[in-house]
Design a protein around this nucleic acid. Structure first.
Length: 201
DNA sequence: GGTCCGATTTTC
DNA sequence: AAAATCGGACCA
């Protein structure tokens, strides 16, 4: 019952099946989850290919009282995935792009973490093709770019990313990270501008 | 069916 | 600095 490791790359992926983040990782407040996701690896399986990126920028959207969060005016068809349980994804359109959120607590506490930027690790060639872009630094340095590079579209909205069978999930970084987390304000929003909910590695 | 607008990206 | 571009929410 084990998936093949990526074609090239790092030793940490040798046992990555054991390192998929479980539901109880996500089932905490989004501020904690957003910070702890930094340094972990987003993995996307497309056919027999694996795309991997290290998470380097996230934002938290709060379950209650956050005017900038998509849950603020209640449940709609669009944001229904936020009301699932922790570890599902909420993928929504922003202009002509898609953005990827992970649901944190869910149900009556529909918070989430927006994946804003990655450092490409594995499958760079495919990312370049999906992005129609050759500069590595331009592949995944924005939330819309992340989805384009990893072929994350709204077909995946509402999927559970805590299962071994998922074609999208996040694995633990088993290396020791010493870099401190930088905390700043969220970007691209008009309300709740000044909350310290953006986290960068 | 029309209108408005945004958790963005790209280009001028 | 401004255009490109589009699905969803809302109202009619």
């Amino acid at each position: 019952m084990s998936s093949p490791p990526p074609s090239t790359g790092i030793i940490i992926f040798m046992s990555w099946n054991n390192n998929i983040l479980p539901q109880n990782f996500y089932n905490r407040n989004p501020v904690t989850v957003a910070q702890e996701l930094l340094g972990m690896y987003l993995v996307r399986k497309i056919g027999s290919e694996y795309l991997v990126g290290k998470i380097i920028e996230t934002e938290a959207y709060l379950p209650k009282g956050d005017k900038a969060a998509h849950n603020f005016t209640g449940k709609t068809k669009r944001n229904a995935s936020l009301y699932k349980t922790a570890g599902h994804v909420y993928i929504h359109a922003m202009r002509q792009y898609n953005l990827l959120d992970i649901v944190t607590e869910g149900q009556s506490r529909p918070g989430s973490v927006l994946i804003r930027a990655l450092e490409p690790v594995e499958g760079v060639k495919i990312m370049k093709k999906f992005r129609n872009e050759s500069r590595i630094e331009n592949l995944t340095n924005g939330p819309g770019k992340v989805c384009q590079a990893f072929k994350v579209n709204r077909d995946l909205d509402g999927m559970d990313i805590t299962k071994v069978t998922s074609n999208l999930f996040i694995i633990k970084n088993t290396e020791i990270t010493t870099k401190p987390v930088t905390i700043t304000e969220r970007v691209g929003i008009v309300s709740e501008k000044n909350l310290p909910l953006r986290f960068t590695l």
